[in-house]
């Protein structure tokens, strides 16, 4: 544990089952893609190093289970996230419609201090599939993103590695920005002196 200069960002990936969360992660971290579908149980964890403006950033990716039956991991699971990535499948309108409920659930469970400013990113995955299968147009997606609070939007393909790097670059930048703002608020001085009353009875251990 020596390399402490790096900033660590906790990024949570949410979205309906089968939209390609795990595939996105795998492509992003390992540059691999598998056609097989394997449901994620609970959560998987990946890390990826990024260089953002000369700053080493470690992204701690929390790839969550989309399937409801594997979701009950608890409130604390979302706690302390620096950014949340919402994923839907551009060929699956249900997954698109669920985006805002995913967002709401995250905000509730993560106990975010400042929900309006919390960094989200929305990804429309599977754009490699034929155009006629597509259920959600870019325009529709953009308008939703705007209504949810100007959330950055990317259309990605985990299979063909389209737009993933770009999207996560924004994820990292937004998370960093958020963290800087948090740090700024914390810079008050802190007094740590103990007031010892030698003959007092309150402080200390009298065992």
């Amino acid at each position: 544990m020596s390399s402490r200069k790096k900033t660590l960002l906790k990024v949570i990936i949410l979205g309906d089952s089968g939209v390609g969360k795990t595939s996105l992660m795998q492509q992003f971290v390992n540059n691999k893609f598998s056609h097989q579908y394997k449901a994620t149980i609970g959560a998987d964890f990946l890390t990826k190093e990024m260089l953002i403006e000369d700053k080493n950033v470690t992204i701690q990716l929390w790839d969550t289970a989309g399937q409801e039956r594997f979701q009950s991991l608890g409130v604390a699971f979302y706690r302390g996230a620096d950014c949340c990535v919402l994923v839907y499948d551009v060929t699956n309108s249900k997954s698109f419609e669920n985006l805002s409920s995913w967002k709401d659930e995250f905000l509730i469970q993560a106990n975010v201090k400042n929900p309006d400013n919390f960094p989200f990113v929305i990804l429309g995955n599977k754009i490699d599939l034929e155009e006629n299968k597509r259920a959600i147009t870019t325009k529709k997606a953009l308008s939703l993103c705007e209504s949810l609070g100007n959330i950055p939007y990317f259309e990605t393909s985990a299979k063909e590695n389209v737009n993933i790097e770009v999207a996560f670059d924004i994820v990292a930048r937004n998370a960093l920005q958020q963290e800087l703002e948090n740090d700024a608020e914390f810079n008050e001085d802190y007094s740590d002196a103990i007031n010892i009353h030698i003959n007092g009875e309150q402080s200390g251990c009298a065992c």
Binding site: A39, F45, L46
Partner: peptide, 9 residues
């Protein structure tokens, strides 16, 4: 691979 990507099926 850090995580075993489990397949429930």
């Amino acid at each position: 691979n850090d995580n075993g990507n489990s397949d429930v099926l």
